[in-house]
Design a protein around this nucleic acid. Structure first.
Length: 443
RNA sequence: GUGGGUAUAGCGUAGUUGGUUAACGCGUCAGUUUGUGGCACUGAAGACCGUCGGUUCGAAUCCGACUAUCCACCCCA
């Protein structure tokens, strides 16, 4: 297919028939996060490249080989954001949000960009719902943010996710752990895969994540971070668990979780599914107590998570979760003839301005074809306007689901329609409730 | 970056051992007399069979390369 009519590799169009699902999910996320005290923040799609080097980390795959980086006309190195935390953290510092009441809770819905080879659940442009909680070191904050993700999944009706948590300690205790890891893996040096040999020096924790059968077998016997974290970190982790228990959130401690972004400290967590292919992490996050000072700000212990919208949708589809239907058209005004067409346009305009979704013919179709179109658009009502109606001033509103009709006046149609539709909806609810017993009261 | 699978109308598919105008379902558009949807019927539009090259009298069908796409590794949401 020609380049002109082909979206770039790893990108997706969200089509009209699907967009209501995204809107639903996104609206729920914003609302639930709002209940937790989060307010939306919007930051630029691109940032100075240096920001990601400092935050995400120079040695990470994301920075080393996956960033969309280019030089702009002003000779600045610019990068399309590969994740959401860096931009939010930068904005926090730039606008002095640390002077606002702490913690500052922000959330965002953004697109992210990574130059990767696409596969199931992995795109070059993908979308994330993220939250960041700036300025608290308390373990209760860790538990709260996990409970927020949990609430979102629960509310959306997603099941079967396993929550895996771990503590990777603070920079201090990690030194000891790295040392222990190096010693351990050095003993198995001859069996490790080439990549892991490289990791041994640079970042031994990554070996724990290696999928090669040999390495993972060796890794299975490796020292576990939790055994090496300092007393403070251990106590922190214990308290996080206590809070999760108190909220009845089930989790699994997975000492293997090694997040790929360098800024993480202490608590890390993932919500993982087995139903959407190899890329099963739907939500990942953790604490990053060192990020703000790394970026030149005051020490500001913080934490957050990112949730992959596409992966979440994939999972919801796989589980057959019900989405609310897209809002259908309230009324389709069918017209015959030029004068009627003018009247239809006038009435539709009035209706739309009073919040009614109304359609009229703008394709020059016959009455029958307009009726068919109304049906396809799932219009709840139709009304036909022709010479007769213009003359008599009376119109008949037809309810499409039942075919029942009601007469009203042409002049007041725009105002009348609202009450017709409300009254009939009430009747429907009444009928639906008929015979239903609520707390012993018959309706 | 490394593997493996796939490529036929907008979508989903058929196409027998190479052999005339590439078929079907859904969808789209129009019609089935006068101004009323769903159902049914009729008809129309829509495919250089991913691209290029090769074998052959003849290729959607066989071979090769390229491209795209999907899945997996790596890594991550």
């Amino acid at each position: 297919m020609a380049l002109l009519t082909k979206a770039p590799k790893g990108t997706q169009d969200l089509l009209p028939s699907q967009s209501h699902k995204n809107q639903y999910v996104e609206n729920q996320m914003l609302e639930i996060a709002g209940n937790f005290g989060y307010k939306e923040i919007r930051t630029p799609v691109f940032e100075h490249t240096e920001l990601f080097h400092r935050s995400v980390g120079d040695t990470t795959d994301v920075v080393q080989k996956e960033m969309y980086t280019f030089t702009d006309k002003g000779d600045r190195s610019i990068t399309l954001r590969p994740e959401g935390t860096a931009g939010a953290a930068r904005a926090f510092l730039e606008h002095g949000l640390f002077n606002e009441p702490l913690p500052q809770k922000v959330c965002y819905l953004t697109s992210c960009y990574r130059y990767e080879k696409p596969q199931a659940g992995r795109l070059r442009e993908f979308h994330q719902f993220g939250v960041e909680c700036f300025g608290t070191a308390e373990p209760s904050a860790d538990a709260e943010i996990i409970s927020l993700a949990d609430s979102i999944f629960a509310f959306l009706g997603v099941t079967g996710l396993s929550l895996e948590i771990n503590s990777i300690g603070c920079p201090e205790c990690r030194k000891n752990y790295h040392k222990a890891l190096k010693e351990y893996f050095a003993e198995h040096k001859d069996k490790l895969c080439p990549t892991c040999l490289d990791r041994l020096e640079r970042n031994p924790m990554r070996i724990l994540d290696c999928k090669s059968p040999v390495c993972s077998e060796i890794a299975a016997g490796a020292p576990v971070v939790i055994d090496y974290i300092c007393e403070d970190c251990a106590r922190h982790f214990e308290t996080v668990k206590k809070y999760l228990d108190a909220m009845n959130i089930t989790y699994r401690i997975n000492p293997r979780i090694v997040r790929g972004l360098d800024y993480y400290t202490r608590t890390v967590f993932e919500f993982v599914s087995e139903q959407i292919g190899a890329q099963g992490t739907v939500c990942g996050g953790g604490r990053y107590d060192g990020l703000m000072d790394e970026l030149g700000g005051a020490k500001t212990p913080s934490l957050g998570f990112g949730m992959g919208i596409e992966r979440l949708l994939l999972l919801m589809e796989a589980q057959g979760v019900d989405f609310p239907e897209a809002k259908a058209c309230d009324i389709c005004i069918v017209s015959a003839g030029e004068n009627a067409g003018l009247k239809a346009a006038e009435i539709a305009f009035d209706m739309r301005n009073s919040g009614i979704s109304a359609l009229t013919d703008i394709s020059g179709r016959s009455v029958k074809a307009q009726m068919k179109f109304a049906d396809k658009m799932k219009a709840r009502y139709t009304v036909v306007i022709g010479d007769n109606e213009l003359e008599s001033g009376k119109v008949i509103v037809k309810k499409m689901s039942t075919g029942e009709t009601e007469e009203t006046s042409l002049e007041t149609l725009a105002e009348d329609f609202m009450s017709i539709s409300i009254r009939q909806s009430m009747d429907e609810i009444g009928t639906a409730l008929d015979g239903i017993d609520i707390n012993g009261f018959k309706i």
